[in-house]
Design a protein around this nucleic acid. Sequence first.
DNA 1: GAATTTAGTTAGATAATCTAATTGAATTAC
DNA 2: GTAATTCAATTAGATTATCTAACTAAATTC
Lengths: 180, 180
Amino acid sequence: MAKESTVDQQLPKLGIAPYLQLMNNTMAKGTDRKSAQMGLLMLWLSDNVLDVIDEDLSAFGITESKLDLLLLLLLHEERELVTPSAIADRLGIRRASVTALLDWLEKRKWIAREQSAKDRRMIHVRITEEGVDLIDNVLPTFWATCASLLDDLDAEERKLFEKILVKLNGSIEKRLGVGR
Amino acid sequence: MAKESTVDQQLPKLGIAPYLQLMNNTMAKGTDRKSAQMGLLMLWLSDNVLDVIDEDLSAFGITESKLDLLLLLLLHEERELVTPSAIADRLGIRRASVTALLDWLEKRKWIAREQSAKDRRMIHVRITEEGVDLIDNVLPTFWATCASLLDDLDAEERKLFEKILVKLNGSIEKRLGVGR
DNA sequence: GAATTTAGTTAGATAATCTAATTGAATTAC
DNA sequence: GTAATTCAATTAGATTATCTAACTAAATTC
């Protein structure tokens, strides 16, 4: 039966062991084995975290980066001049990329562009009422999904993890020169 | 001066506080506040981890997903029949997407395709010597970059974090039905 | 007032994914 | 033992998120 031969040729899950084996053969002298191992796990976990969040958001027809931008606009709503340049700067992407994101969000009426009166080269970007409605719709499940990432940790572990998480995120933000 | 007005319109980094504020207003009843907060931090950290790794790998002209595929092939090198279908299954993507990845890797001579003699619909995919060379080149820095993610943690924190990391990755893999 | 700088967009590219259709080979069902 | 079906891989065509380079219009500098 073809179905079974398909199962037959399935690639077995090897687990982390062969990766560690490979690591021992390919690691530079100065690298700490345990740290590299944990870093690899962090990378895998990170991939998986993004997948979980993507999956959650896809039900709302939006992606993480776009939600991110909408939240940015919401949290800077009172600022009178939020420009594509400032957004690009903040998100660490090019202005041209911001133009594309804004085109997409504008088409769905979740943001609006208005030309600045002071300097007519500049554009003020703001979230619309519909955009706020979307966010109000998305966030309850979004927070629940975020929380669910920690479901398997007990109270003690959560407490320990919190400190570590803040530290790790702080140092990586410094390293990349980013931050929200 | 224009330069200064650009600085002027820069969006300030707000930190996590306004996100938590927003969370309080938009969270569903049953969601645990602290967990949601930590989940959000995990998401941010995950984004940053992928950025760090991407940056590291870009020096070698390869991306995480392609390295991932090459490692998969390396670790299954002795298997006589590694097909695009099996790869797709394992990576959780479509066969068509695997075709595209393989085209790219084959063009650079890092993998080779050979038709199966037994079933001529099937293709055996293997990593080439050049592919192994690439990996040997990439891995030393790759491991160092992985390890560097934990640079700021002290010995005690690392020990605690390891247990948590294994647990978190285990549960998220189960949830997504993936794994290596 | 001419040259330069700046903001935003457009054009065109690449990567990583998808779905739907196609091709060729193997299997199944009369 | 052929006809219909299934299966593996690819192709065609689309989307999202990014990039660089070129362009346009406005503001600033000299």
